[in-house]
Design a protein around this nucleic acid. Structure first.
Lengths: 147, 147
DNA sequence: AATAGAAATTAGCCATTGCTAAAGTTACGT
DNA sequence: ACGTAACTTTAGCAATGGCTAATTTCTATT
């Protein structure tokens, strides 16, 4: 029973398939965000500490080291990192490229929120959550936003 | 080999425990967002169609009906919904309260993005992803944002 | 150079949230 | 009222990303 228009302020629901596509996009983002978080963090650690080790990743991600070990295997299989067992971690070209993209996106969002008036610490925390769910279109608008 | 200071304009990393707390918050959001998505959608369906059925939820979430069945058991155990087997779904007081909160938050974000200049369809899609990751503080600022 | 401690990996577990196939239940049309 | 179609549930499986305990490897100190 599709209703064209209503006088009541009821929000007419979107088309089911359209709505499903939104949720599918969120689920897709969930599959990629672990990769992005790891790669971004590895890049930061290499920048600042010259080296990224599994224990640093574990401490900063708030997970146990075996969780990191397992994930690093996956990242290596997918070609984002290279590492020898028991040695520190390096980004491949592919990993570097992804890290760069993620860091830029992260920074755009954080700075946008701060310009909007959000407390910098909260902006940082919020950015961590939302960065994987922002479209390029919205990101472009955030980048250009002034005052 | 920890290095004390550098002259390069490297962004100094946050404290590991602080950073870990950001990621922990994101993981916590992931645990709650399924609940929120279901409850919000059930509320919308009841508003517009007078009734929320599992097959509608499945179509609109883009998942198979057994996935919905299983989740509804959890939501019932957690006191968000009530339903008899093979019948439609009702929200409890607790579920209604959560749905109200989520719908308001969703709307604030969507309308904020639109005021910012984001295309309404993209705003809707982005809002679906980020609504579970926005702090109350940022939400307050978005609500107050004009032009 | 030996060894103790730190770090990384392996093994094996659990919870969540997807799925398909099959079985059960409801409801509708003739 | 009965049979079929639509809907829901059950059963069982897979992938992801957590964990602890135990083992292996590296490293640094003496």
């Amino acid at each position: 029973m599709p209703i064209k228009k209503q006088n009541k302020p009821e929000p007419t629901l979107a088309d089911p398939a359209t709505q499903a596509s939104w949720f599918a996009r969120v689920r897709e983002a969930h599959r990629t965000e672990t990769t992005e978080d790891y790669v971004e963090l590895i890049a930061d650690l290499i920048d600042v500490q010259k080296e990224a080790r599994a224990s640093d990743l574990a401490a900063r991600l708030g997970v146990a080291t075996p969780t990191v070990s397992k994930m690093l295997i996956r990242l290596q299989e997918e070609g984002f990192i290279e590492s020898q067992p028991y040695r520190s971690i390096f980004l491949t070209e592919k990993g570097l490229k992804l890290a760069k993209k993620c860091k830029e996106r992260h920074q755009i969002i954080r700075e946008f929120l701060v310009r909007l008036g959000v407390d910098p610490e909260i902006a940082e925390s919020d950015a961590e959550g939302i960065e994987h769910h922002i479209s390029q279109h919205t990101l472009d608008i955030m980048r250009a936003f002034k005052n």
